Simulated assay, not measured.
Amino acid sequence: MSHRYSQSDIDAVYRVIAERRDMRHFLPDPVDADLLQRLLQAAHLGPSVGFMQPWRFIRIADRSKRNAIHALVEQERILTAKALEEREDEFMRLKVDGILECGEVLVAALMDGRERHVFGRRTLPEMDLASVACAIQNMWLAARAEGIGMGWVSLFDADKLAALLAMPEGAKPVAVICLGHVKEFYARPMLEQEGWAARQSLDDLVYRDAWGIKEEK
Rank of each mutant, 00 (worst) to 15 (best):
Met1Arg: 09
Arg4Asn: 01
Ser6Trp: 02
Asp9Ile: 10
Ala12Asp: 12
Val13Asn: 01
Tyr14Ala: 03
Arg15Glu: 14
Val16His: 12
Ile17Tyr: 09
Ala18Lys: 12
Ala18Val: 02
Glu19Asp: 14
Glu19Asn: 08
Asp22Asn: 15
Met23Ser: 04
Arg24Leu: 05
His25Tyr: 13
Pro28Cys: 10
Asp29Trp: 09
Val31Glu: 09
Asp32Gly: 09
Asp34His: 13
Leu35Val: 14
Leu36Val: 05
Leu36Ile: 06
Arg38His: 14
Leu39Tyr: 12
Ala42His: 01
Ala42Cys: 02
His44Ile: 02
Gly46Val: 01
Gly46Phe: 02
Val49Gly: 03
Gly50Gln: 07
Phe51Pro: 00
Phe51Ala: 06
Met52Gly: 06
Pro54Tyr: 02
Trp55Pro: 00
Lys65Thr: 15
Asn67Tyr: 07
Ala68Asn: 03
Leu72Ala: 07
Val73His: 13
Glu74Arg: 14
Ile78Leu: 13
Leu79Arg: 15
Leu79Phe: 08
Ala81Pro: 01
Glu86Phe: 07
Glu86Cys: 02
Met92Leu: 15
Arg93Gly: 11
Arg93Tyr: 03
Lys95Gln: 15
Leu100Asn: 14
Glu101Gln: 15
Cys102Gln: 07
Cys102Pro: 05
Cys102Leu: 08
Gly103Met: 11
Val107Phe: 10
Ala108Arg: 06
Ala109Phe: 06
Leu110Arg: 06
Leu110Trp: 10
Glu115Phe: 13
Arg116Val: 15
His117Asp: 07
Gly120Cys: 06
Leu124Gln: 12
Leu129Asn: 04
Leu129Ser: 10
Ala130Gly: 01
Ala133Gln: 03
Cys134Asp: 00
Met139Asn: 00
Trp140Met: 09
Leu141Lys: 04
Ala143Trp: 10
Ala143His: 06
Arg144Trp: 07
Glu146His: 11
Gly149Phe: 07
Val153Gly: 03
Leu155Tyr: 01
Phe156Lys: 00
Asp157Leu: 05
Asp159Asn: 07
Leu161Tyr: 03
Ala162Asn: 01
Ala163Arg: 13
Leu164Phe: 04
Met167Lys: 02
Pro168Glu: 08
Glu169Gln: 09
Glu169Ala: 14
Ala171Gly: 06
Lys172Asn: 08
Pro173Asp: 05
Val174Met: 05
Val174His: 00
Val174Lys: 00
Ala175Lys: 01
Val176Phe: 09
Gly180Phe: 11
Lys183Ser: 15
Phe185Met: 05
Tyr186Gln: 12
Arg188Ser: 13
Arg188Ala: 15
Pro189Leu: 11
Pro189Tyr: 12
Met190Pro: 00
Met190Glu: 15
Leu191Glu: 11
Glu194Leu: 14
Ala197His: 03
Ala197Met: 08
Ala197Tyr: 09
Gln200Thr: 14
Leu202Asn: 07
Leu205Tyr: 01
Leu205Met: 10
Arg208Asn: 06
Arg208Trp: 09
Trp211Ile: 06
Glu216Asn: 11
Lys217Cys: 03
